[in-house]
């Protein structure tokens, strides 16, 4: 996964300038900021508010409403584990519990070595190949503890 850039205001302002001409530019801006920096820095909120002529409270409200937007940087690799019913029918809850325990984190947590962040996701549309996950955006299917650990070890340190 490409390493996120550290928060910096000039870059953030350039992103704002790029998207603020769209109809309803808020989500495209937030996605672009998160893509660049890996999370939405608190300092982005007044910048967005000023650019879009909104109150800080309104911007804060949007950022905190959506599950995707992180408030702090993620680990080097992001594992999104599916908790949808189809995955549950194939044992995903037990797999998730084991994985979280192995990594020593809770949902949304990042390992102490900053290697992995684990997030729940409610359906990836891979419901015939459950349990499924996205690791750094790449799909994984028919997972069990062995194949998931293998996939994590493969990217570790990269």
């Amino acid at each position: 996964m490409p390493e996120a850039v550290a928060w910096n205001e000039p870059r953030a302002k350039a992103i704002l300038a790029e998207f603020s001409g769209l109809e309803g530019p808020m989500l495209p801006i937030l996605h672009a900021l998160q893509e660049e920096f890996g999370y939405i820095d608190a300092a982005a909120i007044p910048l967005i508010a000023e650019t879009l002529n909104l109150s800080r409270a309104e911007v804060h409200g949007v950022v905190t409403f959506y599950h995707d937007f992180r408030h702090e940087p993620a680990g080097r690799h992001v594992l999104k584990l599916c908790r949808g019913e189809a995955c549950q029918s194939m044992g995903s809850e037990a797999l998730a519990a084991e994985t979280l325990r192995d990594l020593g984190v809770a949902w949304h947590g990042t390992t102490t070595d900053r290697e992995f962040t684990v997030e729940p996701v409610y359906c990836l549309g891979l419901c015939t190949l459950s349990p499924s996950a996205l690791l750094d955006g790449e799909p994984l299917a028919r997972l069990d503890r062995g194949t998931l650990v293998e996939a994590l070890e493969e990217v570790r340190g990269q």
Binding site: G24, M26, L27, E58, V62, F65, Y66, H67, D68, F69
Partner: peptide, 25 residues
Amino acid sequence: IRMGAGAYVCGEETALLESLEGKRG
């Protein structure tokens, strides 16, 4: 094309419209 941001309720059509407008869904 516009991307949602992980909120299931935005599949409800009016929440979707709010989200497209850049608000909470």
